[in-house]
Nucleic acid binder design. Structure first.
Lengths: 109, 109
DNA sequence: TAGTTTAATCGTAAAGCTACGATAAACGAT
DNA sequence: ATCGTTTATCGTAGCTTTACGATTAAACTA
């Protein structure tokens, strides 16, 4: 087949965006990273790799995905890179999720 | 490399399960299906394919994924199959999400 | 300048995801 | 029994994801 990627134009922007954010959460390592950033209550410079059971290159890939989707930010601090939660992305996720939750829960739970 | 799949045993069960549920939401068609099931306020037999811009086989695959992860149920009703939201799965998702949200939001938003 | 540390990127292998047509299976109806 | 409807499954193409080692790039340090 020619078409093997998601036909994003055929769904609503909210559906597409929430799916994108959900995909970023669709790996335990990325959830663990978000939790680390949240519980340390500050930007983390370099300690992330040490706390995950994955190779440095793999962690870097996960960080890139979280950054690309807008859930975290990373800024250079000397030879290290400091990663923080990105409030805008987190808020967007919460809003989109809450909207879906409201729809789904209303008739379910 | 030999290991190319997620090392699930290296993360907490909650992280692994939430990632699994998030993956089920990581496609706009599956979000659209959940919304359809919620807003129609009843089980839907057969109308799902008609409302999505995807082939019948593709929709069936998406339904299977949602069923496997526990977010919907399907039961046979004559020649058709009726799909409903699965309250247990929805509740589980809400709980796991809420826990993450609480952690992440507390220090962020 | 040379060396060290830190993180990104490259290259690659294995597996997964998405899509569709074709086919099969299950059921009711004639 | 045969036909039509509905849905699942099979087979397959192509792209994506995950993982890692190796390398590169950037910045500080001596």
């Amino acid at each position: 087949m020619i078409m093997t990627r998601t036909k994003t134009e055929l769904f609503t922007p909210d559906e597409t965006r929430l799916a994108e954010l959900a995909k970023a959460l669709a790996h335990p390592a990325r959830i663990a990273i978000l939790k680390m950033l949240a519980t340390k209550n500050s930007c983390i410079c370099g300690e992330i790799v040490d706390e995950l059971p994955l190779a440095q290159a793999t962690v870097s890939q996960h960080l890139k995905e979280l950054k690309n989707v807008g859930l975290i930010k990373g800024e250079i601090d000397g030879p290290k890179v400091c990663y923080c939660l990105n409030e805008d992305g987190i808020k967007e996720l919460r809003l989109l999720w809450t909207a879906l939750e409201a729809t789904v829960m209303a008739k379910c739970c």
